[in-house]
C-alpha cells in the first residue's frame, strides 16, 4: 500500500510541477514588469505562448478523436439498444434513434431467463467477494504480523500460483467438481452423479481465495505500526481480536480495492461457468449473452440491450471507484 500511496502522490507532485511550468511561466510574462525589457524578447515570449496554446489545442483535438474511437462502440451499443428494429436495420442507416424504445430490454428479459442469470451472477459474485475478503485478509494478517516457521516459503509458493494459466488446472478442477463425493447423486467415490455441476457451490469454487488478495492485504497490513499489536497484546487481546477489531477497520480502502477486484473478476468470468454449467437455469450473465444468437441468426436489439445491462454494474463500480482500480494495477501490475 505504501507504494500505491506514493504513486498517487507522485501523480499529484508531477502534475503540480507541470502546472507550475505550463502556467506560471506564462503568468510571469503577463504580470511581470514589461518596462525595461527589450520588445523583441516580449514578442518572442508571446509567440511561444501562442504556440503552446496551439499545441494544447492540438492535443485536445487528438484526445477527442481518440476518445470517439474508444467510446464509440459503447455509444453504438447504447443507441442500438434503444432503437426500434426498423431503424436498427434501416438502409441508409439511422444513426440516432428517432424514438426511444424499451422493447429490446423487455424482450431480453421476457423471452429468456435473463433475470435468473442476473440473480445467479449476483449470488456467485457476492459470495466469492465475501469469502475472499475474509480468507485473504486473515492469511494476509498472518503473513504480515505473525511469526511461524516456513512463512516466507509458504508465501512465495502461494504467490507462484499467479503464474499458472487457468487452462492447466481447468480439466482437473472440472473432474473434481464432477466427481465431488456425496454431492449431486455421487457416491463416496464420486461416481454415478453430477457432483457439483450446475450448483452455486461449483460455480463459486475457483474464486474463494484470490492470491492477489492475500498479497494486497499483506502489503497493506505490513504498513500498520506494530505498536498497535503490542498495546493490544498487553491488554490481553487475542490475535483474532487484533485482526478483526484493529486491522480490519484500519484497512477499509484496501478491502474496498479487493472487493471491487473480486466482484468484477467473478462477474466478468466466462470460462468457468461455461465449463461447469449446462442447465438453462444455472448460467451466469456472461454465458446468458450467448442465447441471443444462434449460428445464423442474431437478435441484435435484445443482445445489445442485455450487453448493456450486463456491463452496467461493472462500469458504474469503475467510474465511482477509479482510484481503487488504478491502485490495484500499480501495486501488482496484475489484473484482478
Amino acid at each position: 500500500m505504501g507504494s500505491t500511496r506514493r504513486f498517487t502522490l507522485d501523480l499529484n507532485e508531477a502534475n503540480m510541477r507541470e502546472i507550475h511550468e505550463s502556467t506560471c511561466g506564462a503568468e510571469q510574462v503577463r504580470s511581470g514588469s514589461p518596462g525595461p525589457r527589450p520588445k523583441v524578447l516580449l514578442e518572442r515570449r508571446r509567440s511561444r505562448l501562442l504556440r503552446s496554446a496551439l499545441a494544447s489545442a492540438g492535443v485536445y483535438a487528438l484526445l477527442t478523436a481518440i476518445a470517439v474511437i474508444m467510446a464509440g462502440p459503447f455509444v453504438w451499443m447504447l443507441l442500438s439498444s434503444f432503437k426500434p428494429n426498423q431503424e436498427l436495420f434501416a438502409y441508409p442507416p439511422v444513426w440516432i434513434p428517432t424514438k426511444i424504445t424499451f422493447e429490446h430490454f423487455i424482450n431480453a428479459f421476457r423471452y429468456t431467463n435473463f433475470a435468473r442469470y442476473f440473480l445467479n451472477s449476483t449470488i456467485v459474485s457476492v459470495t466469492a467477494t465475501l469469502l475472499n475478503l475474509f480468507f485473504c485478509s486473515l492469511a494476509g494478517y498472518a503473513f504480515a504480523r505473525l511469526d511461524f516457521p516456513g512463512k516466507n516459503l509458504i508465501f512465495f509458493a502461494i504467490l507462484a500460483t499467479m503464474m499458472i494459466p487457468v487452462y492447466v488446472t481447468l480439466i482437473p478442477l472440472f473432474i473434481l467438481v464432477k466427481r465431488f463425493p456425496l454431492a449431486g447423486g455421487n457416491n463416496l467415490f464420486g461416481q454415478n452423479g453430477t457432483g457439483l455441476i450446475n450448483t452455486y457451490w461449483g460455480l463459486v469454487l475457483p474464486y474463494v481465495v484470490s492470491v492477489f488478495g492475500v498479497f494486497l492485504t499483506r502489503q497493506f497490513f505490513s504498513s500498520i505500526p506494530t505498536e498497535l499489536n503490542d498495546a493490544a497484546r498487553v491488554d490481553g487481546a487475542s490475535e483474532f481480536a487484533i485482526y478483526s477489531r484493529i486491522y480490519l477497520p484500519l484497512s477499509r480502502p484496501v478491502l474496498a480495492t479487493l472487493a471491487i477486484f473480486s466482484f468484477t473478476g467473478v462477474w466478468d468470468d466466462f470460462l468457468w461457468p461455461l465449463v461447469i454449467t449446462n442447465s438453462e437455469h444455472m448460467r451466469t450473465v456472461q454465458l446468458g449473452l450467448q442465447i441471443f444468437r444462434s449460428q445464423f441468426l442474431v437478435d441484435w436489439g435484445p443482445l445489445m440491450a442485455a450487453t448493456l445491462v450486463v456491463t452496467l454494474p461493472v462500469l458504474l463500480i469503475f467510474i465511482f471507484n477509479q482510484r481503487h482500480f488504478v491502485k490495484g494495477v500499480v501495486t501488482t501490475g496484475l489484473k484482478g
Binding site: 474508444m70 467510446a71 453504438w76 468484477t264 445489445m304 456491463t311 462500469l315 469503475f318
Partner: peptide
Amino acid sequence: LFYLPVVTSIIAVSMIWLW
C-alpha cells in the same frame, strides 16, 4: 474513457464488436 474497455468483460466486448 480510454480505460473503459479494460473493465468491460471480454464477452460483452465481443458482443459489441460482433455488432
